[in-house]
Amino acid sequence: MIYAGIDIGSITAKAALIKDNRLLGTHVIITGYDPINAGIKVFDTLLKQIKISKTQISAIISTGYGRASVSFADKTLTEIICHGTGAHFMNPKIRGIIDVGGQDSKAIFLDKMGHVENFAMNDKCAAGTGRFLEVMARALEVDLELLGDFSLAADKPSKISSICTVFAESEVISMIAGQEKRENIIAGIHEAAAARVAILANKIKIKEPVMMTGGVAKNKGMVRALENRLGFKLIVGESAQENGAIGAAVMASRL
């Protein structure tokens, strides 16, 4: 029996397939302006890669902000449950999850069975999300993928005091004008974002071991800033970005 999970996020769409409690494969594309099409495309591409047909799929669950736009899914679930399930599937010891995606960030607390015990999400604010980093990368003319490497090369992280993305951007622009080192500004940005995310983790009194998931987990600078802020190491798997889709596929196998 093969099960699929599709996670339509604000920036990327992810698909995952599992068979006999084993991960078959995952795929990620940009969501773009058309979440309906993104859902179809990411799913079809993954099927082609794994070389299986749609008829072999027993059940599909969609998740993420665009979960309702996946019309061929059997059920929708929120990304909170899916990230919890995905993390538990990848590593049953995990008790805490920090998920930083494009539109929001969240901290999730799991019980020993992998059930969500509690969660906290960012409020109506982009600070501490992938979008925040994207805006800053643009202001600094740095590729989003390289943001983490830049920050690791900092010698003295700049201090970003604004908690609002819009104000932080103008603060960064004045730092650029003041000729502060780009590496230091970027490290400062990561520290500011990490401070916001850490509040969520502290709010629910997260317990180790903690896994970081979501697209932002690929950013080494952000992982390090978060670890410094929280005072413990984070576990980052290879499929951190696809973790929600993996969890959705696991949930589909339980339908």
Partner: peptide
């Protein structure tokens, strides 16, 4: 709406 919706859905799932 989307933020409130996700929170309520997740809360009900729990």
């Amino acid at each position: 709406q989307s933020q409130v919706e996700t929170r309520i859905d997740a809360f009900m799932e729990i």
